[in-house]
């Protein structure tokens, strides 16, 4: 009995100790509590021209957005201009800056790296890491984006490419530290339970594009809580993982199928016309769905590290959400 009492007291003490620094996940595993550092609301800019409309600028101001993750360019496979029979990783879709960065907003220059380009970087990760960082910083400097503290790499790495990506981020991370800057990376849900993550100072968990878009039976490929939960339930150990911010979707689209086969994404489903044999699956996460996922994520993975991030800065999409709804998404525990 004394022995049982000892075990019980010990457990309570441990739980009390944990409760001061950790949440308890639903599966009983330990997860990290994240420190709030430079907390602010943040939003992605994922267009090839940076020229926010008046409404978008007002949105930034109204919601006290202090950080803009701006996609600067993609790294994709490109035929070498000198030796076209060589395909090389190179920047494409470079963002053009037609407007200044709103005052007081920190920019996180972001690069999207395709898997094909990543594969071509094998063996040359160090060189490409520096080229990517240098170009991001050159763009920041040229387009007067202000002081930069962080650079973000976005890549949908897989089991077969994680080593290449790790080598890339490892070198970028070291290189950025010599410049007194940090590296963050995006993490998709399916990457949550990978044995390890590529090296970075922190990550952004992307809580959108969770479903298989081309599958006709998918209910909502942008965000479906039934897709999200299995990943979250599997997370048990976050101790040695990097701190995370969370990115939530505030966009929608239509997915057109023809004769049961995926056909195309329709940006404005309201005005889409359908031909014979065509169906349109309109996808837009409701704010309730987003908030449900948000609570589950925070419950399972801990509070956000710096920011809740909205994807993405587009008035046509954002106007589907009320200010209050946006505020709820941004809210930090």
């Amino acid at each position: 009995m004394r022995q049982r009492l000892f075990y019980f007291v010990s457990a309570v003490v441990i739980l009390l100790l944990m409760s001061s620094s950790r949440h308890v996940d639903s599966g009983g595993g330990a997860i990290s509590v994240q420190q709030h550092e430079n907390p602010t609301n943040a939003i992605y800019h994922w267009k090839t021209v940076f020229n926010p409309s008046a409404e978008e600028l007002a949105f930034i101001e109204r919601h006290d957005i202090g950080r803009l993750y701006i996609k600067m360019f993609d790294v994709a496979c490109v035929k070498d201009s000198i030796e076209p029979y060589n395909v090389v990783p190179a920047p494409i879709a470079t963002t053009r800056f037609d407007a200044s960065i709103p005052e007081g907003v920190e920019v996180v220059p972001t690069v999207y790296i395709t898997l094909e380009a990543l594969r071509l970087m094998e063996g040359y990760e160090c060189a490409y890491a520096e080229m990517i960082v240098d170009r991001l910083l050159a763009m920041v400097s040229y387009n007067e984006c202000g002081e930069i503290r962080e650079v973000q790499f976005d890549c949908d790495w897989t089991e077969s490419t994680i080593d290449i990506y790790t080598a890339l981020t490892d070198h970028a991370h070291s290189y950025l530290h010599t410049l007194d800057k940090e590296l963050s990376i995006t993490i998709r849900l399916h990457q949550l339970d990978d044995d390890y993550w590529p090296i970075a100072d922190r990550g952004v968990l992307m809580l959108y594009n969770t479903g298989a878009i081309k599958n006709p039976s998918t209910r909502n490929s942008i965000l479906d809580i039934t897709d999200v939960m299995p990943y979250l339930r599997r997370i048990t150990y976050m101790d040695d993982r990097m701190p995370l911010d969370y990115a939530y979707p505030t966009f929608g689209w239509g997915v057109k199928f023809r004769d049961g086969e995926f056909h195309s994404i329709v940006s404005d489903p309201a005005s889409a016309t359908l031909g014979e044999g065509e169906t349109l699956r309109v996808e837009r996460p409701t704010v309730e769905e987003v908030l449900t996922v948000k609570s589950w994520v925070e419950e399972n993975l801990g509070g956000v590290y710096q920011s809740n991030i909205i994807y993405h800065l587009d008035d046509e999409e954002l106007k589907n959400y009320t200010d209050d709804e946006i505020t709820q998404i941004f809210s930090r525990n």
């Binding site: 201009s81 470079t94 040229y142």
Partner: peptide, 21 residues
């Protein structure tokens, strides 16, 4: 300069200095 494909200018010189511009 773009033969490297990675070129991007770092300073404005009073005129378009990127190919996009």
């Amino acid at each position: 300069s773009y033969n490297s494909l990675w070129y991007y200018p770092t300073m404005k010189v009073g005129g378009p200095m990127t190919l996009e511009e």
